[in-house]
């Protein structure tokens, strides 16, 4: 290893619009620490959290242009740059967080349209984050019946809003920084589209400790850690290799990493006097709702992608691959989504 030791140090900046304690950034941190370790200290990281270096909307262009080397990103930060990858915000019934991250890794390795999109944006995805299910609504009080969401004002964004409207809820568009106050002051009745980890990470469990798991499947899965293409190509080959190996390891470790953070999040929900309530397809109201949603969320994604001038073939190929890969990875041995485990620990009363 004498060669590695004598090689020049590489300083990489990591930018995230979220705080260091969020689940996705803990995964990114795990990745960075591993890379630093396995490169024998050759790679060093300067970490910038909470949008101190790049704001969310500047993240993709900023990494492509070298304002940051590496960053946590979600396709929705720049939806018109990732009209195809944005399919990750369409829920697939039966999918889960570990499986989705692994499915996305294969999607990116195999689907040419997705590869072309990332290339055009000037970035390469190092790892896809696994995020606990975002098909949720959190509220102050437990809702014992899915029908109770009728007429409720719930904060939601993105294509899945269509599905929420079919539930009879009124989606409200509240700026992320206003969510806590809006919830506390009763401006909204619930916060939707957020994971058990980000509820706790943002402190929303203080005002909305009850999480209702909805059976439309996991989504918000097109997010991860990106590196600028220029930065990547300028890295020595041995470092590139280390970074890819650590990624392999990351996907193997993901069930443990997620289980731990989901359990920790559940602990905090319980401590705040809340918990999770699971509505699965055995619930007739839920079943009717999911059937009613049908293809409508995919349709929103398709029309968005068309408006971004993506070819029909690319749209069709990404959709087919997405559905196939997510279902192929739906069963992850040794992993039960945290919401289910948490529901067994939750006590209503």
């Amino acid at each position: 290893n004498a060669q590695a030791a004598s090689a020049a140090k590489v300083r990489l900046s990591f930018s995230s619009a979220l705080g260091p304690d969020t689940a996705v950034n803990k995964q990114a941190k795990w990745y960075m620490d591993e890379v630093a370790k396995r490169s024998g200290g050759q790679v060093q990281w300067d970490e910038f959290y909470a949008a101190s270096l790049l704001s969310s909307v500047d993240t993709v262009s900023g990494v492509a242009d070298g304002r940051a080397d590496v960053a946590y990103f979600a396709s929705v930060y720049d939806p018109s740059r990732f009209p195809l990858m944005d399919i990750g915000f369409v829920p697939m019934p039966g999918s889960n967080s570990v499986g989705n991250a692994r499915a996305w890794r294969e999607l990116m390795e195999e689907n040419e349209a997705l590869q072309a999109e990332a290339r055009a944006a000037g970035v390469k995805v190092l790892i896809f984050n696994g995020v606990a299910s975002t098909s949720n609504i959190v509220t102050k009080q437990p809702q014992d019946d899915l029908a109770q969401f009728k007429g409720k004002k719930v904060r939601f964004v993105g294509p899945v809003t269509t599905a929420i409207q079919k539930l009879g809820a009124n989606p409200a568009s509240i700026a992320a920084e206003d969510i806590y106050e809006a919830m506390e002051r009763g401006l909204i009745d619930g916060i939707g589209g957020t994971s058990i980890e980000s509820v706790v990470g943002s402190g929303w469990h203080e005002v909305a400790p009850w999480m209702h798991y909805l059976p439309i499947g996991n989504y918000a899965s097109s997010l991860g850690v990106i590196i600028g293409l220029n930065t990547w190509e300028n890295l020595p080959a041995d470092l590139q290799k280390v970074m890819m190996e650590v990624a392999d390891d990351y996907y193997r470790q993901l069930p443990n990493i997620l289980a731990a953070s989901e359990k920790a999040a559940c602990d905090q929900l319980l401590a705040a006097g809340g918990g999770t309530i699971v509505y699965d397809l055995t619930n007739p109201v839920a079943k009717d709702w999911v059937d009613g949603v049908g293809d409508s969320v995919f349709e929103v994604w398709r029309s968005n992608a068309q408006r971004s001038r993506v070819s029909a073939e690319a749209i069709a190929s990404v959709e087919a691959d997405y559905k196939q890969k997510l279902l192929a990875h739906a069963n992850v041995p040794n992993y039960t989504p945290g919401e289910f485990l948490c529901s067994a620990r939750s006590r209503r009363g």
Partner: peptide, 10 residues
């Protein structure tokens, strides 16, 4: 490059 990118987006 980073300067122009910053001036263009910030």
């Amino acid at each position: 490059g980073v300067l122009m990118s910053s001036l263009g987006t910030l």
